[in-house]
């Protein structure tokens, strides 16, 4: 499957309000609409971050986990034009955050491949420049589609 197929228009936020890492995680979790299980998911993601930041550098973070809270693989994207502190490995602000949450068991076993595809997509600086410029979720889909991951 192509990466673009994992996103929905209402799971893309091109103007995050968050000023820091925890706020950003909460805001992105909000896009998942897991309601009363949001707190559990936040705790788990925070635990993952405490072990090692998923801010991989060059303005990108890919927080991720598996949880019983979701019944299928979910991916959401958030952008912060001014950047926020995500304790990234290069010490620089993060502008693009891809949150991935999968159930413990998936028949299609997409969790690691999707993580890999997003990491691969973000390694190309041109893709990130394109994401900097988009103004609508539809343009987000076009960027992913053009990247052919």
């Amino acid at each position: 499957m192509k990466l673009v197929e994992f996103f929905a228009p209402d799971e893309i936020d091109l103007d995050l309000d968050a000023e820091g890492k925890e706020e950003a995680l909460k805001e992105l979790i909000g896009l998942l609409s897991v309601n009363e299980k949001s707190e559990e998911l936040f705790r788990l993601l925070k635990k993952r971050e405490n072990l090692g930041s998923t801010g991989i550098g060059k303005g990108v973070a890919i927080p991720h986990c598996r949880s019983l809270v979701v019944d299928r693989l979910r991916v959401v994207y958030g952008r912060k034009a001014d950047g926020l502190d995500f304790d990234a490995i290069d010490g620089k602000p993060v502008h693009h955050i891809f949150l991935i949450v999968a159930p413990p068991v998936e028949i299609s076993n997409q969790y690691l491949p999707v993580l890999g595809k997003i990491a691969q997509f973000c390694k190309n600086p041109k893709n990130l420049l394109r994401l900097d410029d988009i103004e609508t979720p539809e343009e987000f889909f076009k960027v992913l589609d053009q990247a052919d991951v």
């Binding site: 299980k37 559990e40 705790r43 788990l44 635990k47 993952r48 986990c65 598996r66 019983l68 413990p104």
Partner: peptide, 10 residues
């Protein structure tokens, strides 16, 4: 239990 199992999975 959900929190525990999620941590074990992590």
């Amino acid at each position: 239990l959900i929190a525990l199992q999620d941590l074990l999975q992590l």
